[in-house]
Simulated scan of single mutants.
Amino acid sequence: MSVRHPVIAVTGSSGAGTSTISRTFGHIFRREGIRAARVEGDAFHRYTRSEMRSLILAAEARGERGPSHFGPEANLFPELEALFAGYGETGQGRTRHYIHDEETAQTFASPVGSFSPWQPLPEDSELLFYEGLHGGVVTDEVDIAGKADLLIGVVPTINLEWIQKLMRDTQERGHTLEAVQTTILRRMHDYVHTIVPQFSRTHINFQRVPIVDTSNPFAAKDIPLPNETLVVISFRNPAGVNFPELLTLLHGAWMTRPNTIVLPGSQIELALQVILLPRIKALLENSRIARSA
Rank of each mutant, 00 (worst) to 15 (best):
P72E: 14
P72G: 09
P72M: 09
E73S: 07
E73C: 01
A74P: 01
A74W: 02
A74F: 02
N75S: 15
N75D: 13
N75V: 12
L76N: 11
L76E: 14
L76Q: 13
F77W: 13
F77C: 02
E79L: 12
L80N: 00
E81Q: 15
E81W: 01
L83T: 01
L83W: 00
F84K: 00
A85V: 14
A85H: 14
A85D: 14
G86H: 11
G86R: 03
Y87I: 01
G88L: 06
G88M: 08
E89P: 01
E89Y: 02
E89T: 14
T90W: 04
T90Q: 05
G91S: 10
G91I: 08
G91N: 11
G91Y: 04
G93A: 03
G93E: 00
T95V: 04
R96M: 08
R96L: 07
R96K: 15
H97G: 00
H97Y: 13
Y98W: 12
I99C: 05
I99R: 01
I99Q: 04
D101L: 07
D101P: 04
D101F: 07
E102F: 03
E102A: 14
E103I: 12
T104I: 13
T104A: 15
T104S: 14
A105H: 04
Q106H: 12
T107A: 10
T107L: 12
F108G: 05
F108M: 06
A109R: 13
A109W: 04
S110V: 11
S110C: 14
P111I: 06
P111H: 07
P111T: 07
V112Q: 06
G113A: 08
G113R: 05
G113M: 07
S114A: 15
S114R: 12
F115C: 04
P117M: 09
W118E: 12
Q119I: 12
Q119L: 10
Q119R: 15
Q119K: 13
L121A: 09
P122I: 10
P122R: 10
P122H: 11
P122T: 09
E123M: 11
D124Q: 13
D124T: 13
S125E: 10
S125T: 14
S125R: 09
E126V: 02
L127W: 03
L128C: 06
F129N: 05
F129T: 06
Y130G: 01
Y130R: 02
G132M: 03
H134L: 13
H134P: 01
G135A: 05
G135P: 00
G136I: 12
G136D: 10
V137D: 02
V137M: 02
V137F: 03
V137C: 03
V137T: 15
V137K: 00
V138L: 11
T139R: 10
E141N: 13
V142I: 13
D143S: 09
I144S: 00
I144D: 00
A145K: 02
G146R: 07
G146V: 10
G146I: 10
G146A: 10
K147W: 00
K147A: 15
A148I: 07
D149A: 15
D149P: 08
L150H: 07
L151M: 06
L151W: 02
G153V: 07
V154E: 09
V155G: 06
V155W: 08
P156Y: 07
P156N: 08
T157F: 06
I158G: 04
N159P: 12
N159T: 12
L160D: 09
L160H: 03
W162A: 13
I163Q: 06
I163F: 03
I163V: 15
Q164S: 15
Q164I: 04
